[in-house]
Design a protein around this nucleic acid. Sequence first.
DNA 1: ATTAATTTGTACGTATGTATT
DNA 2: CAATACATACGTACAAATTAA
Lengths: 137, 137
Amino acid sequence: MAIDPSADRPVYKQLADLIRARIEEGDLRPGQRLPAESDYVAEFGISRDSVRRAMAVLRGEGLIITELRGSRVRDAGEAVTVQISPGTQVGARMPTEPERKQLGVAEGVPILVITDPGGETRLLPADRTIARAGDEA
Amino acid sequence: MAIDPSADRPVYKQLADLIRARIEEGDLRPGQRLPAESDYVAEFGISRDSVRRAMAVLRGEGLIITELRGSRVRDAGEAVTVQISPGTQVGARMPTEPERKQLGVAEGVPILVITDPGGETRLLPADRTIARAGDEA
DNA sequence: ATTAATTTGTACGTATGTATT
DNA sequence: CAATACATACGTACAAATTAA
């Protein structure tokens, strides 16, 4: 499979589709290092700009983590289960950048907003937290 | 307040901070149109590239919506409350691009993943859904 | 209704900085 | 020290869609 610059779908989305498929098929496993941006530039004859846009898409989906030494497939990690009692509400949204930094959440990871009946809210990283209805310990 | 290209913090993040502050202070209200990219280019003497990166940050935080005719402050909209019975789990993550399209979710909006005790899962847009523990209809 | 202007989307290039190897 | 790799930031150009004239 290759990338068609003349296709309707933008080059960077085509590349994102391609890499996403490789991840979902297990061709690229959690924790595994992705090829360097320059590798994709060479492999498909596209600009680094397009490669970086594709990476940004995948980061936004929480599928990869990009660090200075390269990108790797994100490992979901073990989630902690939080018991929530009746009346408690659970929502989710993306953190703002200051919140993200404060909570130590990776890019592309939402936060769970858990509001007790009393009105107090907790913000928890959604990649490490599952809310479970039920009182029993 | 202005933008300092020689500061440690990247120009695009400085601009994102600035616009975010204007939104949070109510200077830019929900539904209101943001200035065009070219306006920010002119106002701060920075590249369009930097402006677009700033917009991408704010989109990723779910603060703004960008369409072809411009960006506007996102209106949270009314959320639907979903009752979840004991044993039901609630998580959240970002949708992949195909999922986002299928569910009709805006960029920067996570999805709630609600798993019944039976194992069946529902995907719901987090900007329009609140999960609430409790059985009563 | 056609045209022109506006605005964002995509995509290329180049350059420099910074951290890691 | 040098090579690698990503981050930022400038530039240009054209396409596509919407809005205004």
